[in-house]
Amino acid sequence: MNEIEIHNLYKSYGPTKALDNLSLSVEKNGFYGLIGPDGAGKSSLMRIITSLLLPDSGSVIVGGLDPVKDYKKLRLKLGYMPGKFSLYQDLSVEENLKFFARVFGTTIEENYHLIKPVYSQIEPFKNRRAGKLSGGMKQKLALSCALVHKPEILILDEPTTGVDAVSRREFWDMLAEIRKSGITILVSTPYMEEAVLCDKISLMFDGKVVDSGSPDDITSGFKNNLFIIKSANVPLLLNVLRGMEGLKSVNSFGQTIHVVADSSETGKPEIEEFLQKNNVSGCSVEQSPAGIEDCFIDHILTNTTT
């Protein structure tokens, strides 16, 4: 039996559809990522799983329990870290952790082994008020608090949003560490590059799951040829390439441009030729395997055009 099992879930706020016929399953001790931009419905889904929101329709089973009927039992099994920093800013690091331990009927000492990979990093600051911590440290504290009662399922809503790159990396390493103790982890993130760190992911957009599977499954499902073009003048190049035929999409990825070919007829030579014709020089064209973000954009394009 899967730890989280969701079928045909609907949830709307008035006329806005937050979740639209959504299904997914997370296996026991899985490390599952919900990937999608703001407004994709990730938080709503997590709140339904944690029994904080009622679904409109559809079936949800979490840890063998129904979040609507058995919310009391379910809440004991869950560790939840909401998207917004939700700790007591006027309490110190240690006081926050002690409070959550006590509320769940345990102590820091009892589960120290579990929170150690996270808590040991902020322990030197245990007398500092939570409000005075840096973004990364706040998230570590929040994670410690969500873990201190030894939950079976850990639900993390965008834990790395607004956190610097180094801390983000550390945070993911910690999650991998925590998972070793048998906890099922469901985590959401808007950062596509973090998706590969999960076992399995669901790409979410507009309340729907547009694709699910392991990151490799998803990237290998990308059938078209992808070319990465480096240029000093991305906006200009973007304009030029959008005039080229035989391309499915042209998107800027910061300093580079990702170009997806319509068919195998459009290859590296064709693109280089087109650029030369348009008097664009000084750029390099390389064929490349698709990343998660390429797949995501591809799905959105096919979804919105059909």
Binding site: K72, R75, Y80, P82, K84, S86, F104
Partner: peptide
């Protein structure tokens, strides 16, 4: 307002 109620609700309190 600060969102801590969300955690309190998910706790056994």
């Amino acid at each position: 307002e600060t969102g801590t109620m969300e955690i309190l609700l998910v706790s056994p309190l």
